[in-house]
């Protein structure tokens, strides 16, 4: 554990909390892509199956449990509790175009051809692109509420901070995991356009609005 990794995890946790409280207190999931949330639930489920096989640390277990529970809680809020507010007409990204390549790639490029390991790899690949339905929704509607922008910023920062963590781990322990690194870089790059808009608009008090 190092400072970058800790900040990355906290940023991830913050993103989830922002999203849950936004939906809960506004009693609405308008502007949120349910498809991205479904992908995240698949990501955590596939990745954290090792909860029952490997013990890393109490921190590790607690975070995994929180990420798993919160992803299902988010789906519950979107699909059941506040389903009337779900903006399905703008949430039209075809997730099979992300799921199928992630499955094929995980079967082809992995560290070890075993069920748990292929699922872990699949989750890493899928996570790197899971935000696309959400970004697509923002581009389709041309705008995002500030709270949604804060959520996206915290979620995007998380993998960016992990990249620093991987640099640090390679430098201090000689440890590196190419699959995680390459996917993490792809994931962070996908947010770059959004980061630019966030800094130039949202932080200056303006709403995130895309040019028509």
């Amino acid at each position: 554990m190092n400072i970058f990794r800790l900040l990355g995890d906290l940023s991830h946790l913050l993103a989830i909390m922002i999203l849950l409280q936004k939906i809960f207190y506004s009693r609405s999931c308008a502007g949120i892509s349910a498809k991205s949330q479904v992908l995240f639930a698949i990501v955590y489920t596939a990745r954290y199956l090792d909860l029952v096989t490997v013990y890393v640390s109490l921190y590790n277990i607690s975070m995994k449990v929180v990420f798993l529970l919160s992803s299902y809680a988010t789906l519950y809020l979107i699909y059941l509790k506040f389903r009337a507010t779900y903006d399905r007409n703008h949430d039209t990204f075809r997730i099979e175009f992300l799921l199928l390549p992630a499955i094929v790639l995980a079967l082809l490029i992995n560290h070890q051809f075993s069920a748990l390991e292929v699922l872990w790899t699949f989750s890493i690949y899928l996570e790197s692109v899971a935000i696309l339905p959400q970004l697509f929704m923002v581009s389709k509607t041309g705008e995002a509420e500030s709270i949604t922008s804060h959520y996206l910023f915290a979620l995007g920062s998380y993998r960016g901070l992990y990249i620093l963590n991987w640099f640090y781990r390679y430098w201090t322990e000689g440890h590196y995991d190419l699959i995680a690194i390459v996917a993490g870089v792809v994931q962070t790059v996908l947010y770059c356009d959004f980061f630019y808009l966030y800094v130039t608009k949202v932080l200056k008090g303006k709403k995130l609005q895309l040019p028509a």
Partner: peptide, 10 residues
């Protein structure tokens, strides 16, 4: 590539 350690990251 062999798997050296369990995945200790989130």
């Amino acid at each position: 590539v062999g798997l050296q350690t369990p995945h200790d990251e989130l």
